[in-house]
């Protein structure tokens, strides 16, 4: 895909503004549902950047995996743990925010300095452009074959791990008495194990 340089610049500025402001919104908004939807917008804008960089396969993967899977998963998690709770105030919160803000500003300054002082070897070799998808396929089945196969094992492990971690231990019969267990008790009112005991 070849588009005029000025159009490219305008697209980059718009997508960059969406990413920067959306990222700040994800972190700063008080309503977590708004944050989750803004996160989806940021993912879409990043996919747009990939299209601008002539990487249509990675852009499609970004939309499918991030917007279609990760963001939906996050929304489901919000739905499942959605309890309005008033967080108790903690001491020294402004100091903590200021300190971490200073650390992040320092990191940002470092990154910007590296980005602008390093003599990057641009322009590099001739870009493959539209042939990027074919090239990625060649890479995945030749020199990156082992990481590709390991990724499938990793995904299988993550799937099994997520199921094991998130399921409830439901047993049809009570182990002690042999009677059939009260399903309502299992689903709703199982005593949480690790809740802080109120000080006596």
């Amino acid at each position: 895909m070849t588009i005029a340089a000025s159009t490219q610049l305008i697209c980059f500025l718009v997508l960059g503004a969406v990413i920067a402001i959306g990222g700040l919104g994800v972190v700063l908004l008080s309503n977590i549902v708004y944050s989750a939807f803004l996160l989806g917008g940021v993912f879409m804008a990043v996919a747009g950047l990939y299209l601008l960089l002539n990487a249509s396969f990675v852009a499609a993967a970004q939309v499918l995996v991030y917007v279609g899977a990760v963001n939906v998963l996050i929304l489901f998690a919000i739905m499942l743990v959605n309890k309005r709770e008033d967080l108790e105030p903690i001491k020294g919160l402004p100091t903590r925010r200021l300190l971490s803000g200073g650390v992040c500003a320092g990191l940002f300054a470092l990154l910007v300095r590296v980005a602008f002082t390093t003599p990057w070897a641009v322009p590099g070799p001739e870009a493959v452009g539209e042939g990027a998808t074919v090239r990625i396929g060649e890479h995945l089945f030749t020199d990156y074959l082992l990481p590709f196969e390991l990724a499938s094992v990793l995904l299988l492990m993550a799937m099994i791990g997520a199921i094991v971690l998130a399921r409830r231990d439901v047993q049809a019969t009570d182990l002690g008495t042999g009677q059939s267990a009260d399903q309502g008790l299992i689903e709703k009112s199982r005593t949480p194990l690790l809740v802080d005991q109120p000080p006596a």
């Binding site: 960089l53 002539n54 990487a55 396969f57 990675v58 990057w120 070897a121 641009v122 322009p123 590099g124 070799p125 001739e126 870009a127 493959v128 990027a132 090239r135 990625i136 890479h139």
Partner: peptide
């Protein structure tokens, strides 16, 4: 895209 345009290992 800018430095490794022919091999696109970054992608």
């Amino acid at each position: 895209s800018y430095v490794d345009g022919d091999l696109i290992r970054g992608q």
